[in-house]
C-alpha cells in the first residue's frame, strides 16, 4: 500500500480523465467521521488514498477479468475508474486516518483531533 501511494503521489493527478463517483456514506459521531465508499471491481493494489493538506482523494482503477476478445453489449459501469475528492474540516486529524478495504467496500475512519473532542463544560452556580 505505502509503495503504491508513493507512486501515485509522484505522478500528476490525471484530472482530465473522466471517472465515476463512487456511492458514499459519511457518518459523523463524537469521535470522528466514518466514510464508506463502494468501489466494486477495484483490487486492493489499484486503490489509492491521498490526504494532502485538507483534501482527501479516493481513486481506484477497475480491473475485471475480461476474456480475450470480449465485445461489450451493455455497460452500466462504463468507465474503468472511480475518483472522489472530499475537503476535510480543520478539527479532523488527517494523520490518524485508518482504512479497510474489503470486497469493493472502502471504510475510512478519520478521528477528530484531540483538541476538538467534545468536552462537557460544567456550569458553576454562583
Amino acid at each position: 500500500m505505502s509503495e503504491n501511494n508513493a507512486v501515485a503521489k509522484a505522478s500528476e493527478p490525471r484530472r482530465d480523465e473522466a471517472a465515476l463517483l463512487p456511492p458514499t456514506d459519511v457518518i459523523e459521531d463524537a469521535g470522528g467521521i466514518t466514510l464508506y465508499a463502494d468501489l466494486a471491481g477495484v483490487p486492493k493494489d489499484k486503490l489509492s488514498l491521498q490526504v494532502e493538506a485538507d483534501t482527501l482523494t479516493i481513486e481506484g482503477e477497475v480491473a475485471l477479468d475480461l476474456p480475450e476478445g470480449m465485445e461489450s453489449s451493455h455497460a452500466e459501469v462504463s468507465l474503468p475508474r472511480y475518483r472522489r475528492v472530499f475537503t476535510l474540516s480543520r478539527e479532523l486529524d488527517p494523520g490518524k486516518v485508518s482504512a479497510e478495504f474489503n470486497q469493493g467496500v472502502l471504510k475510512l475512519r478519520i478521528p477528530k483531533a484531540e483538541h476538538a473532542q467534545p468536552r462537557r463544560i460544567e456550569i458553576q452556580v454562583a
Binding site: A40, L64, L66, P67, E68, G69, M70, E71, S72, S73, H74, A75, E76, V77
Partner: peptide
C-alpha cells in the same frame, strides 16, 4: 447491482 454484459464467440 449495476450490470455490464458482453460476450465472446464462445461465452
Amino acid at each position: 447491482p449495476a450490470l455490464n454484459v458482453g460476450g465472446t464467440p464462445k461465452t
